[in-house]
Write a protein that binds this DNA or RNA. Structure first.
Lengths: 192, 192, 192, 192
DNA sequence: GATGAATGAGTTTTCATTCAT
DNA sequence: GATGAATGAAAACTCATTCAT
């Protein structure tokens, strides 16, 4: 009898994820209450519980969706030989993958204290650590570790610290990547 | 076993700060309740309120105590000419100042979402931004900004990401500083 | 003994208002804690917060419900010409309206210090002042102001001061109204 | 060795009473904390406890000081014959006594809910009731009771409701007294 | 696919009061 | 004549979560 005003095949689950993501980014995970999410969406808190078992579950779903490119990158990197070239390639691809995954890294970075106790926090940190581990693979050299750490911080957090700087996000990303690549060292076949 | 149970003329204020700092670092600011601090100390919640007007006030006091070296560094840097040498010197001194100030930066980093609404958060961020601003002074060159940002991230957060790496904290700090200095460029009178 | 323990579709909101009103009247607004209201009702404090956003909100709801007759009277009076007859009619109707509204005026009177800071206090005082203003309309004569003030105090608070006196509440109300009408002066067309 | 800045023979007790009175009037008894009183005075809370056993004790002392004229009036009235003339004389003297005693009546009126549980509240109400009883003495006539109640309300609270009206406090007091005297009836030897 | 009603456990904060010094 | 330090009890409020409908 007539069409429902609701979209068919309820998109509510996705709408919850989207709204939650926005709020988690702008207000923090802990400081965002389910009431806020529900109100913003025009549904009740109970509705959230129909779609997700817990608050953490919402973040888990978001993390899975947005983190997929990075997970795929990790899978790829695990197949590669541990050379400097791989490292540079991985850094480049990682920087690209971060474009879409950035919001969850933002959440991870700004809510570490809270995420410490949560399973999803473990998952998120595991991703970061996997990249880090893969980047370090192939040598236990102290200096290299330091350089890789610096490079990773650069591609990872650089964007957050450059709000006031002119230029597009993409330009900044490219520039940060360039510095990171310099830091981890010249590609094979080039003189240092 | 037979030690003075209670000092006269109260060292309680300092004990509160110390205990709070430990808990803020290990469990996060928001997740640390005043009940926990009080219990850990063997006093009542009301005792905390005798010494500090609010929970935030405790963090403010900690921030003032631990941040003093950085504040002094900022004052010093504001008197210096905006040369590359100054920048390098500032980076070196900053790295040193962070040795004692690290815990509050740790708190700032891991509780950004929470500290967003707090006056003490503003103060802490102001300190970071002051250093950043002073480091960028003297030219508006895009590439330099990127490099300085990368270098700052390195001395700032490097230590956090190197838990698993061998070597003393001091060794790591020196190594990170070296990379940071490389990143912002050679000192005057040397060939790049 | 065997009555329905819990109504569906919740009459709880009304039960809260009723219980709160009783307690606000008998123990005072400030001295009545939400815990007391909740215990008296056999629900948890959180249940109160499901139905009302704040403690003040409960009083606001009560004030709206009980004050409606007075609000309607104010609306009526604003349409009338500012004659002595109107004043007498208003006084008479006001005395009648107070029959049901009395509890909130009781609360207002006995908790003025507390209600000073509350928005609902403003609302309540506005009602009193509106009646007072309407009663004074039409002349700025000093003596009349004094008489109107006296008359209003009489219908307003008279009942509170006559607890020990015999007679029904209605008899007292009528007698107080008579004195009040005398005080503001004879009706048009009668010799003073 | 030089004169102390403190007044000799500590006037602190009086200063506490004065400050407390001001705050009790302007913010209410309950809403005024001992901390506030102490801070306003530049002493510690403990100092208040040196001079007064409890918070209530401060109000009790104030009540005794300011209420003395009324207590004396009550003593006087108890000696008088219960005639209409006495009633009019009592009303006149009461109105005069209220000039200085007003602040405690203000406190009583605005904090009834709080003062309900306090011994000092009993004392204050007793004073009001003594006047009321003395005023009603001599006949049990219903109509007279009503009139006396109205008249008392007028001299008692009239001033509170006439803030916005022009004229000095003394003018208002006189005018209110005149209306009150009219209400309780003509003096002996005059035609009603 | 969702709601209305409720809960239990927790939070920060405030207050009058006490007492050794 | 006062203070510094502390307490116990309570307050208002928030939150993630549950469940019958």
């Amino acid at each position: 009898m007539g069409s429902t005003p609701q979209a068919r095949r309820s998109d509510t689950r996705e709408r919850i994820q989207k709204t939650a993501l926005d709020l988690f980014v702008s207000r923090g995970y802990e400081k965002t209450s389910l009431r806020e999410i529900a109100e913003e969406l025009g549904v009740t808190k109970a509705a959230l519980y129909y779609h997700f078992k817990t608050k953490e579950d919402i973040l888990t779903a978001i993390s899975e969706d947005l983190g997929r490119p990075v997970d795929e990158l990790i899978a790829w990197a695990e197949e590669q030989p541990p050379t400097l070239d791989t490292r540079r390639e991985l850094m480049t691809r990682y920087s690209a993958a971060l474009k879409s995954a950035m919001p969850i890294y933002h959440i991870l970075q700004e809510n570490q204290a809270t995420l410490r106790d949560l399973a999803v926090g473990r998952t998120l940190r595991n991703r970061v650590e996997a990249i880090s581990r893969l980047m370090h693979t192939g040598d236990a050299d102290f200096d290299t570790h330091i350089r890789v750490a610096s490079a990773l911080l650069t591609v990872h957090f650089g964007a957050f610290t450059l709000d006031r700087l002119g230029g597009t996000d993409e330009e900044k990303r490219q520039a940060l990547l360039k510095v990171a690549l310099e830091t981890i060292g010249a590609p094979a076949g080039q003189s240092g």
